[in-house]
Amino acid sequence: MGDLTLYALAVFLTLTAPLAVGLLMGVDRKLTARMQNRVGPPLLQPFYDLFKLLGKERRLINPSQAYFALGYLLLEGTSLVVLAAQGDLLVVFFLSGAGSLFLVLGAFSARSPFSQMGAQRELLQILAYEPVFFLIIVSIGIQEHSFISRDMSQNLIVTLPLSLIALVAVLVIKLQKSPYDIAHAHTELVSGPLVEYSGPYLATVELARWAEIAVVFGILTLFWNDPEPVAALLGKMVLVFAALFTTLVIDNVTARLTRRRMVTFTLSFGIALVAANIIWNLYLGQGVGI
């Protein structure tokens, strides 16, 4: 592929990935509804919502909310750019983490009980998933001897199966699914950190969240590589849908964990999974795997 093609591909991926996530959200709602014997909203409902929000009047408690929302979107967007440009996964990770800090600051900046409680809980979630996410990326780096996503050549699904399982746990938290919907907790916290956002600002935050989730899905796709482009693409898509479906099933069969248990459970099991995988690959299972 020439440089120009790569440029075009990076721009294309950055712009379409969040939209694809929006579509996946639609699939998510539809499938969840079916699991609960409902008809569910149309597939494109997340986009209808987004456009409707964009057209609404602007209401804020104070302007810094808006700045932090924009910061959130930009940092998640930049993270996605680096990933789409097949850059360094650690940079992707740190940029995306910076984005979630901005979401928290935005929620804190409104003096509102629900919003601030949501912010504290969002921080707890960060504490729960960031270490696991970081270690998953380190395990990829160890396995591939590089953190540059362009260099990924193995089928990590075979060599890092436990990291993949840990990544699904991260995905469940980022998608705010049960048992991890601590911050949004729609029954009592309304929508946690987002409660004081409305109209176009809510749309901004929502779009940023799509980008944030796109980053996780993007890293997920790195677990499948194939020299044949069509086979690679198909494999990656299967991986994405399989992961989404798994989170849906988990969402529907589990109840929310308490905050403390979320942190200890995710950290202990997530880290143990990745650790087991790294130890196996480095010390025990030499010669095993592809």
């Binding site: 983490g97 800090l101 900046s109 003096r111």
Partner: peptide
């Protein structure tokens, strides 16, 4: 890994507090 995550939490809490403002 845990250190990076935790430092976001403790700085986030503090910074968020300073930015908290009413209408």
């Amino acid at each position: 890994a845990i250190g990076f995550g935790a430092s976001v939490v403790y700085y986030g809490k503090w910074l968020g507090r300073t930015f908290s403002a009413g209408p």
